[in-house]
Design a protein around this nucleic acid. Structure first.
Lengths: 189, 189
DNA sequence: GGGTGAATCTTGTCGCTGGCAAGTTTCCCC
DNA sequence: GGGGAAACTTGCCAGCGACAAGATTCACCC
C-alpha cells in the first residue's frame, strides 16, 4: 500500500487530493488542472480520471472531505454557540481550499451520495450549537432563525476574510475578530 | 454609435459585458469563455481582447460595474441600517453574476484603478448605514465592529442563499428572510 | 505456484480555450 | 481628402478535459 515506485503509484487518489488542496490554496480553484496534478504526482495525464472520472468528480471528493473535516472541527470546539462559530471561521482559514470548494456548487456534483451525507453531518453539528443557547433569550421561539443568523454571520465573516475584501485594520487574527463580531448576535459568551 | 452591422460592431464592449452576465447567471463564472462571447456577439474570437486585454480584464470591468451598481442600490435604500442590509441581499440576488465575480478576487485584477474606486464607493455606502444607528446602543463605542458585523451577516446570508446551501423551508423571498435574520443584530428597526 | 479477472496506469487523439502576432478595414479629425 | 488611431480579422500555438484502446500489475483462488 505504501511506496510510490513501479507501475502502480500506490496511493494516487490520496496524493491527488492533497496536491489539489495545495494548488487551490496557492492559486484558487480556477487554476486547478488535472494534467498538472498528474505531472506533480509523476503519473500520466489520464491517470486521475480513473479515480475520479472527471474534474467535477475530484472536486466532489474534495468537498465531501471538507464537510467531514468541518463536522469534526465543530464537534471538537465544545457546545457553546460562540465557540462553534469561532471554530467555523477557524476551519475556513485553516482549510481554505476545502472551504472555497464546498460552497461553490457549480464546481462539483452536489447530489453525490457521499457529499450529501457529509454535508448533513456538518449541518447537524452546526445546529447543535443553537440548542446550547439560554432558553430565555428573546428569539427562543424561532431556533431555526437563530441558527441561520449565526451561520450567516460566521459564514459571511469567513468569506470576506478569505476574499481579501476586509480592510487591513482588522488585524491578522481571524479567531479574535470572529469572536468580537459574533458576540453581537444574542448576548452570547 | 448605434447599429450592429458593418466591420465595426458599434457597441461591442457593452455587448460583451451584458452577455457575460447572462452566461454567468446561467452557468457560473467557470463556464465563461471569451470565444463563446465573441460567437454570440457575431465577431471574431480575438475581438474581445481588444477591449479587455484578456479574460481577467473583462471580469475586472464586470466587477467594477458591480461595485458601482451596489453603491447605487445601497444609496437608494434609505438611511436605516436594516434597509441597507436588505438592499445588499436584494442586490446579490438580482445581480447574481456581478456579485459572484466581485468577491472572487482570483478571477480579476483587484488593484485595477477603476475597480478600487468603485469598491470604495460601495464601502462608503455600507458604512453610512451604521451612522444611522441609535447612539445609545451598547456597542456604540466600536462603530467599525458594528459595520463589520452587519456586513458579515448580510454577506453571509446572501452567499449561502446563492450557493443553494440553505434548506428549502426558508422559502423563496430572500428580502423577507434577510430582514428577519438581520433584525437579530442590534435592536434594529 | 500458476493462472485469471479486475484494478490501475499509459499512450494517443479530439475539440475547445486563452493568448499572441500580423494584417485589414473603418473611423475620426485636422 | 489624407493620415493616424481605433476596431476588428485571420492564423497560429500550447495547454486543457475528455474519451478510447491498450499495457502492466495486483489480488485471489485453485
Amino acid at each position: 500500500m505504501t511506496g510510490t515506485r513501479g507501475y502502480h503509484h500506490g496511493d494516487l487518489r490520496r496524493t491527488l487530493l492533497t496536491t489539489a488542496v495545495q494548488v487551490i490554496e496557492e492559486s484558487g480553484p480556477a487554476a486547478l488542472s488535472l494534467r498538472d496534478l498528474a505531472r506533480r504526482a509523476g503519473v500520466s495525464h489520464a491517470a486521475p480520471a480513473h479515480h475520479f472520472g472527471d474534474k467535477a468528480g475530484l472536486l466532489t471528493a474534495l468537498a465531501a472531505d471538507g464537510f467531514d473535516l468541518l463536522a469534526k472541527a465543530l464537534h471538537g470546539a465544545g457546545d457553546a454557540l460562540l465557540d462553534r462559530g469561532v471554530a467555523y471561521v477557524d476551519f475556513a482559514v485553516r482549510h481554505r481550499a476545502h472551504f472555497e470548494v464546498m460552497f461553490r456548487a457549480d464546481l462539483y456534483r452536489p447530489d453525490a451520495e457521499e457529499l450529501v451525507a457529509a454535508r448533513q453531518r456538518a449541518g447537524a453539528a452546526l445546529n447543535l450549537g443553537v440548542a446550547a443557547l439560554p432558553e430565555d433569550r428573546p428569539t427562543a421561539e424561532d431556533p431555526q432563525g437563530d441558527a441561520l443568523a449565526a451561520w450567516s454571520i460566521m459564514h459571511g465573516f469567513a468569506t470576506l476574510w478569505l476574499s481579501g475584501a476586509l480592510p487591513a485594520r482588522i488585524g491578522d487574527d481571524p479567531r479574535a475578530a470572529a469572536r468580537a463580531i459574533a458576540g453581537r448576535l444574542f448576548r452570547m459568551e
